[in-house]
Design a protein around this nucleic acid. Sequence first.
DNA 1: TTTATATGCAATATATATATTTCATAATGC
DNA 2: GCATTATGAAATATATATATTGCATATAAA
Lengths: 68, 68
Amino acid sequence: MKNNVKMARIQMNLTQQQLAEKTGVTRQTVSLIEKGKYNPSLKLCLDICYAVNKSLNELFWIDKEDLQ
Amino acid sequence: MKNNVKMARIQMNLTQQQLAEKTGVTRQTVSLIEKGKYNPSLKLCLDICYAVNKSLNELFWIDKEDLQ
DNA sequence: TTTATATGCAATATATATATTTCATAATGC
DNA sequence: GCATTATGAAATATATATATTGCATATAAA
């Protein structure tokens, strides 16, 4: 589950801890998502989008051929 | 978790059963997602997008003010 | 050298997405 | 009327996202 969360977070000058607080999850969850080790829920994806001012497509889109 | 899955599925002339088969889940899961009773995983959202040829933003975006 | 910050990772616990099975109902065609 | 298809829903089981806690390391600042 590759994504652009880390890049967007850094652009917004947020630490993992700060993004976690803004989205209501723990730092570990943010870390695992950035590392591509989790398959996050839609609600969490949306909360991350709101926190870093990006769209679902910008942060989470993966072309069909590139999934798995 | 309101979304546009049902509309897109019908546009593609797919039954819930057919969409479920294309996305590798059960009919019940498709039903609950269309009804807004589930918070689906990103991978399933992407699989649905591929099946109905829509983007994450088209099917699943919710403005911040409209989430809960 | 110490202290604080940022991140990664591992182990266990909990919540919930999803599967499985079953039943109900409405619509359609025979 | 009966059979089939499409959908909704409920009950229980399973897999996994997420929480919690704790530890390790690197970096920077004091």
